[in-house]
Amino acid sequence: MDIKEYIQSGIIEQYVLGLADPDEVAELQLLRNEYPELHEAISDFEQIFEETIRANQVQPPVFIKSAVEKQLFASTRGGERRNCRKSKSDKRKG
């Protein structure tokens, strides 16, 4: 395995963006433990990706935060505990 070639093949970008097939992901995971330079290259791209997304961020409408908080914290005093029954009440489908 020529790891330098692998690093430059585009697989890292594909992996970070969530576009790699399961077998490609599995291979990368294996290699990542074996080659520190691969691990580093992945981290570097993740950093660049984060900076780009953050630089282009869009603020959501203010009501969203309180709407989610209501959903997560309003029901019981102790906040949400994994409540399986409640999770079905997704309102989107309508």
Partner: peptide, 16 residues
């Protein structure tokens, strides 16, 4: 913790 997560990530995630 939720509040911090939301304040620091919602703009980025909303753009996605």
């Amino acid at each position: 913790a939720f509040s911090y997560l939301y304040d620091n990530y919602s703009g980025a995630l909303y753009s996605v």
